[in-house]
Every structure is written in structure tokens, then in C-alpha cells.
């Protein structure tokens, strides 16, 4: 693996920058969810211009406030991503990290294009759903980059802390499964939110995802609790899962049950649905983190023995 041959140096400014990008992206996800929850997706009918202009800011009232505000934050995040890619390319010794930086740039361009398509095509559910899914993927990757740029990641040698992890459904696979389960929920949830799917898949999915996430985080705590990052991610996933389930019920009640005939998006509907999207994004990011930490810190018993021999030699 290239990471063990190339030594990266911890760079506090770069680390802080990745963190700022992650925070801005989280705010952007909230801003995007506000667009959807306020039914404001088409308040600005054109793209890439807004009311015919690339730079003039329209009056920020009503739905335009949400839609154009979201575009402006997205442009800012796009700019930060360009800086990230260039900075990583110039300063990070890890070639996979440099590739990840460029991949992030590609992803943000795809995401911006999908955003434009939602406007151009007047919100077909599959484009809106793709936009919601790429958004959370991008956010999760900003979080992972923050992890990869952290002192702890850079300055611990993974081969020395590794523990054995065996079996067909080993912990690494289980951790990957949590990512998959949350993606499934993201797809079903967004498909429902944008009017393309029924609610039932998301509800059944919630039961399955809950099982997988509880199983994985308990395994993480009970078997690998000594590995700090795994313990941390497991606890976060459990906490976020409980909040997410409660928010899901609240979103269902306010938007679907009580809000069925609402004349306009009510504050309670907006708050619960936006929070459900935002916590969903945090949950996905933490499942990614769990998987990454599992792969970094655990290895099949056989591979581990070979690894350690290599270190000793």
C-alpha cells in the first residue's frame, strides 16, 4: 500500500482547512434540505444563471432566499474544493490522498451539475434523489479527509496497532454493511421525499438499517472497544441512530400525517425534515468512518502475522 511507503507530515493549517470544508458542507446540506422542505426548488427558474445573471444577487425573499442562498453556499464550497484539490496535490505525500482531492473536485462538479439539472428538468425525483445522495457522499468524504489529515491518523503506524479480525462476516465487512444500509435509507428516504417512491421501503429499510447499525456498533464496542477510533465511531453511530429514528417519526407525523393538506410548509414540517436529512448525513459520515477505521486497524489473522513479520524484519 502506498500509504505505508510514503510518509505524510501533519500540517495543522491543511487539517484546519479540511475541517472548515466539512463544516461548510454540512451547512450546505442543511441549506439544500431547506430548499426542498420549503418547496423552493424552482423559485429561480434558470441555471447556471439566476434570473439571467451570473453574479447579480436577486432579492432574497420567499423561496428565492432558500434557492439562491443554497446556490451561493454551493459556489463557495466549490471554490474551497478547488483549493483543497490543489493544496493536497502540492503538499500531501500520499498519492491516494492527492487522488482523493481531485476526486472530490470531480464530485462537487457532478453535484453542481445535478443541482442545475434539478432546475432545468423541473425536479424529476430521480435527479433530486441523485443530488441528495451525491451531497451526502461528498460530505462524508470531507469528513474522511479531515480524518486522513489529522495528527492521529498521520502519526500512528497502523501495522503496530492492528488486531485480528476473521470470519466470513468479519467486523470490516460489517462496518461496510453499515455504509450500505445507510445508503439504502438515503435512497428510499430521498425517493419518498421527492415523490418517486412509496414510504414502505424506507420504513422496512429503517428496521434493517437499525439492526445492522446496532449489531455493528455493539460489536465495535464489545470486541474492539480498546481501539479508540472504533469505539468513538460506534458510540456516535448508536447516538445518532436513536436521534435519527426519533426524527424520522417526527418527520413522518409533521409532513405526512398532519401536513398532508397543509396550505404551505409549516415550520414544524421544515424543522423535522431538515433535521432528519442533516442527522442522516452525520450518520452516513460516521459509518464511513467506522469502515475506514476497521480497515485500518484490523486485519485477517493470517495477513496480520505476515504484516508484523514485515515490520520486525
Amino acid at each position: 500500500m502506498s500509504s505505508s511507503t510514503q510518509t505524510a507530515q501533519y500540517n495543522p493549517a491543511y487539517h484546519r482547512f479540511t475541517l472548515i470544508l466539512a463544516i461548510c458542507t454540512f451547512l450546505l446540506i442543511i441549506a439544500g434540505a431547506l430548499v426542498t422542505s420549503n418547496d423552493a426548488g424552482l423559485a429561480v427558474p434558470d441555471w447556471p444563471t439566476s434570473f439571467g445573471s451570473l453574479y447579480r444577487i436577486p432579492p432574497m425573499v420567499g423561496g428565492i432566499k432558500y434557492e439562491h442562498g443554497h446556490r451561493m453556499i454551493a459556489e463557495f464550497v466549490g471554490l474551497l474544493t478547488i483549493i483543497l484539490a490543489v493544496w493536497t496535490q502540492r503538499k500531501d505525500a500520499r498519492s491516494w490522498m492527492r487522488k482523493l482531492g481531485w476526486f472530490m473536485l470531480l464530485l462537487v462538479i457532478i453535484q453542481g451539475t445535478l443541482g442545475g439539472l434539478t432546475v432545468k428538468m423541473r425536479l424529476p425525483w430521480y435527479i433530486s434523489t441523485a443530488h441528495a445522495m451525491v451531497a451526502q457522499t461528498f460530505f462524508s468524504l470531507t469528513i474522511l479527509m479531515t480524518v486522513f489529515a489529522s495528527r492521529r491518523w498521520i502519526e500512528t503506524t497502523r501495522t503496530l496497532t492492528r488486531q485480528p479480525d476473521s470470519g466470513s462476516l468479519n467486523f470490516r465487512n460489517l462496518a461496510l454493511l453499515t455504509v450500505l444500509a445507510v445508503y439504502m435509507q438515503l435512497f428510499f428516504g430521498a425517493g419518498f421525499r421527492h415523490g418517486g417512491l412509496h414510504f414502505l421501503p424506507h420504513l422496512i429499510g429503517a428496521c434493517i438499517a437499525t439492526l445492522i447499525l446496532v449489531w455493528a456498533s455493539f460489536t465495535g464496542l464489545l470486541r474492539f472497544g480498546a481501539i479508540k477510533p472504533i469505539r468513538g465511531a460506534s458510540i456516535a453511530i448508536l447516538g445518532l441512530l436513536v436521534i435519527q429514528l426519533l426524527l424520522g417519526v417526527a418527520a413522518y407525523m409533521t409532513r405526512v400525517v398532519w401536513g398532508k393538506d397543509a396550505v404551505q410548509p409549516r415550520p414544524s414540517m421544515v424543522a423535522t425534515t431538515v433535521a432528519h436529512v442533516a442527522v442522516g448525513a452525520l450518520l452516513l459520515a460516521h459509518c464511513f468512518m467506522l469502515a475506514v477505521q476497521a480497515y485500518r486497524n484490523l486485519a485477517p489473522a493470517a495477513g496480520l502475522a505476515a504484516d508484523q513479520k514485515a515490520v520486525v524484519a
Binding site: L42, A43, V44, P45, D46, F51, P58, P59, V61, G62, G63, I64, R122
Partner: peptide, 19 residues
């Protein structure tokens, strides 16, 4: 005195959205 957009969500006809 407000800016509006008019979004038609037709199925049989073609939809449109204009401000």
C-alpha cells in the same frame, strides 16, 4: 410588487416554469 415564478406540473401536456 412581488417576484413570482409560475410552475405548471402537467402530465399529459409539457410542464414549464417561468419567472
Amino acid at each position: 410588487p412581488a417576484m413570482h415564478n409560475i410552475h405548471s406540473m402537467a402530465h399529459e401536456n409539457s410542464g414549464w416554469n417561468e419567472s
